[in-house]
């Protein structure tokens, strides 16, 4: 449920490093806690984002949640498929449910993110999803 090749945040995003960019989505835990996701609201390419600051929203039948950027950089691509098929985030959070690709300002920021095992340890301290 938490692939080893990804980096994670305590706000439940994942980041996949791809050259000078990262692909970002939300984790299995996050989508499971939210329940059925019905809207994903993301800014378009060219938007600057800051590490651990919210840049978008994901809304389920029961609640809405901010999406935090794992890194500082600029959005270069967003997953247009989520406009019509937000359920991809539930069905396939690490692949079809990706949200944005962010060009990194500084590769060193990745060092502050959690590994898969660190994230899973962190989850044990979190409340059970409601």
């Amino acid at each position: 449920m938490y692939p080893d090749d990804l980096k994670y945040t305590k706000e439940h995003e994942w980041a996949r490093v791809d050259g000078n960019a990262v692909v970002v989505g939300i984790t299995y835990f996050a989508q499971d806690a939210l329940g059925d996701i019905v809207y994903v609201d993301l800014p378009g390419p060219g938007t600057d984002v800051s590490a651990l600051q919210p840049f978008g929203e994901v809304e389920s039948t029961k609640s809405v949640s901010d999406i935090y950027s794992p890194v500082t950089g600029r959005i270069v691509e967003r997953n247009a498929a989520l406009e019509d098929s937000p359920e991809l985030v539930n069905q396939d959070p690490y692949d079809g449910g990706w949200m944005v690709r962010i060009e990194l300002s500084s590769a060193s920021e990745l060092d502050g993110l959690l590994s898969a095992s660190e994230y899973q340890k962190f989850l044990e301290t979190e409340d059970e999803p409601k």
């Binding site: 329940g35 059925d36 019905v38 039948t61 029961k62 359920e87 409601k130």
Partner: peptide, 20 residues
Amino acid sequence: ARMGAFGGWEMPISYAGTIT
């Protein structure tokens, strides 16, 4: 089931997912 408090009871909130 995901359980939750409702009206003083612990009851099932969802199983397969609300939309399903």
